[in-house]
Amino acid sequence: MSGPAIRVGVDLVPLSRVRTMAGTDGGRLLHRMLTPAEAELSRSGAGWDIHGVAGRLAAKEAVFKLFHVTGQPLPWQSIEVLKSPGEWPCVRLSGPARRWAADAGIEAVDISISHEEQFAVAVAAGATARPPLEEEFHAQQDLVQR
C-alpha cells in the first residue's frame, strides 16, 4: 500500500455537563481544560458561552482520537481550538499532542463543530503522508465494500 491516509475522530458533549462545570468553583474545571486564549474566546459579558465551550471540548476530544494513543488521558491544554481569521475553528497543537501527531505522521488537522439545544458535536480529520498499517487498510477496505 502507498499513498496518504486519513484519520477521523468525533465527539459529542452534552451542554448540561458544561453548565455544571461552569457553575462549580467559578469554572475552575473549565480553566483546567481550556487555555487562557480559549477561555478568552469562550467568555462574554454574561459569563461562559456554554455552546462555545461545549463545542471546543468536543473538538479537543475529536482531535485526540486522531492520535490512536492508549493509556494516556486527554491532554486538554495541548490541543487548542481557536479561531482562524475567517472565524472558522482551527487547531493548534503543543506538548504531548504535537508529539503524538508527529508520531502518527499527521501533517494537517481540520475540525468542524456544530451545536444544537442540548449537545455540541465535533469532527476532526487528520491527513497523514504515511500509508495506513496493513490491518487498518483492510479495515477501511472492509467498510468501503459494505
Binding site: M21, R32, M33, E61, P73, L74, W76
Partner: peptide, 10 residues
C-alpha cells in the same frame, strides 16, 4: 470519562 477525568484527578 474524559469530561469528568480532570475533576476526578482533583
Amino acid at each position: 470519562d474524559s469530561l469528568s477525568f480532570v475533576e476526578f484527578v482533583l
